[in-house]
Computed example of a mutant assay.
Amino acid sequence: MVILIIFLALFAGTRLDIDQDYHMYYKNFLYIEDSLKDFNNREISIEYNIFFLPHFFEIFFNNNLTVVRSVFLTFALLGVSTKLIAIKKYSDYFFLSVISYMSYLYFMMEMTTIRAGVAAGFYLLSIKALEEKNNKVFFAIVAVCFFFHSSSILFLLPWILNKIRLQIKYYYLLIFISFLSAVFKINVLTLLLLDRIFPRVDTYMKVMEWQKEDETNIFNFRTLFALLMVVLFAFFYKKLKDVKYFDLLFKIHMVSIILFFFLSTSAQVFSTRSFELLSVVQILLYPMILKAFHPKLRILGWTLIFAFSLIQLYYIISVADIYKPYKSWFFN
């Protein structure tokens, strides 16, 4: 596993300008403010990891380019290692979980949304604490998540729902209601006045209007497959509910869909990234479908996960047009 972590971290962390967010991060790391006071006075606030990591590596390196590369590599190492350690600890199907991870989330989180990637990795490690209601450990991990990405506040929603012991039928109901809100284009953010409470929400919505951003496609492939898995897991729920971590992971999975639908009429950046942030649990949850089948029929579960992973991989590499041809300062 150590070799896999090193390879995946190097592949993602040494990439050059191949993704949409690379230049933004490169400039932030290269031209970081000298003082914390100046950093806090930024017109658009950003998480403190952007300030502290470059300055940490400046202790060891005098070359700005080396500092920038070190920060990128650190994000990749943290994002990859946390997820693979979580897979090793919590998944009964290590290989399938790794395949699920590498077919999509590895590219999106470790090679594009790198702050969210690290936050999601640490959140995956908190599953045991969340399951066992070890609040001290859970909130300590969420604090680390928040240091890397402010959207980690979403991680508290499953904790709240788990705390009040919301019955499974209400999750199904919320999926239905959130789907209707998406179909009838009800903007939940403005309805709940969240654009007035949180300045960043209002900023994103104004940017969306200015850029004339396309509407979120609520019938995209990943969402449809996520709904398919909800149907399958709901059908086998009685059989699977006592499997360790299943009930918790399944509910978090449904929360990610609920948020996606509720936020789909506001901005793609909210709906898609909130879905992807919480969908990190899929790499532990989806392989559990094997436990629903008789041992002689588990090939059906393997086929389902493999097929989905291959389609995801094909989509993100050949269809989505997100990445340029791969370049690396280490491998080339």
Score class of each variant (00 low, 15 high):
Ser328Cys: 07
His55Ala: 00
Ile257Thr: 00
Lys83Asp: 10
Ser178Gln: 12
Gln268Lys: 14
Thr82Ile: 05
Phe219Thr: 10
Ala119Leu: 02
Asn162Ser: 14
Ala320Phe: 02
Ile164Ser: 09
Leu192Trp: 07
Pro287Ala: 06
Ala129Glu: 08
Tyr286Phe: 13
Ile305Asp: 04
Pro54His: 03
Leu227Met: 03
Phe155Gly: 04
Ala140Glu: 10
Glu132Thr: 11
Tyr286Cys: 04
Leu10Thr: 00
Leu259Tyr: 05
Val2Cys: 09
Gly79Thr: 12
Arg15Gly: 04
Gln167Met: 12
Ala234Val: 06
Val183Ser: 02
Trp159Ser: 13
Val207Lys: 14
Phe57Pro: 01
Leu105Ile: 08
Trp329Ile: 03
Val142Gly: 04
Thr272Lys: 15
Val188Asp: 12
Ser274Arg: 01
Tyr326Thr: 05
Leu10Gly: 06
Asn332Lys: 11
His149Ile: 00
Ala76Trp: 08
Trp329Arg: 03
Lys169Glu: 13
Phe179Met: 11
Met288Pro: 06
Phe176Leu: 12
Tyr25Glu: 05
Phe56Gly: 00
Gly79Met: 02
Lys244Thr: 09
Ser103Leu: 00
His55Ile: 00
Val188Leu: 15
His253Gln: 10
Ile160Gln: 03
Arg115Val: 00
Ser151Gly: 07
Asp247Pro: 02
Phe331Trp: 05
Lys133Trp: 04
Leu304Ala: 15
Gln167Gly: 14
His149Leu: 00
Ala307Asn: 11
Ile6Pro: 04
Ala120Lys: 05
Ala116Tyr: 11
Arg15Tyr: 09
Asn162Thr: 01
Lys327Val: 01
Thr112Ile: 06
Asn332Asp: 14
Trp329Asp: 10
Thr112Asn: 15
Thr113Asn: 15
Arg196Leu: 13
Ser151Ala: 03
Phe57Tyr: 13
Leu224Arg: 07
Phe94His: 11
Tyr245Ile: 02
Val319Thr: 08
Phe148Ala: 00
Asp17Asn: 10
Phe122His: 08
Leu8Thr: 00
Ile322Thr: 13
Arg69Asn: 14
Leu313Glu: 08
Val255Asn: 08
Lys291Thr: 06
Ala320Glu: 14
Ser150Ile: 08
Phe72Ala: 01
Asn134Glu: 10
Ser70Gly: 01
Asp247Thr: 12
Leu65Gln: 15
Asn187Cys: 00
Val137Gln: 15
Lys296Asp: 10
Pro158Thr: 05
Leu193Thr: 13
Asn162His: 10
Ile218Lys: 12
Gly13Lys: 10
Phe260Ile: 04
Tyr314His: 13
Ser328Tyr: 09
Ala129Cys: 05
Cys145Gln: 11
Phe184His: 11
Ile186Leu: 11
Asn41Arg: 13
Ala120Tyr: 08
Tyr22Val: 00
Thr74Arg: 02
Lys327Thr: 07
Lys88Trp: 10
Trp210Asp: 15
Ser181Tyr: 13
Leu125Trp: 07
Leu125Thr: 01
Leu105Asp: 15
Lys163Cys: 03
Ile114Pro: 06
Lys83His: 09
Gln282Glu: 12
Ile160Lys: 10
Asp38Leu: 02
Lys239Ala: 01
Leu277Thr: 04
Leu228Ala: 09
Asp19Lys: 03
Arg42Ala: 02
Ala9Gln: 06
Gln312Asp: 10
Leu304Tyr: 15
Phe147Met: 02
Val231Ser: 09
Ala76Gly: 08
Pro54Thr: 04
Lys185Ile: 00
Met102Gly: 08
Asn28Met: 08
Lys89Gly: 09
Ser256Arg: 10
Val68Phe: 01
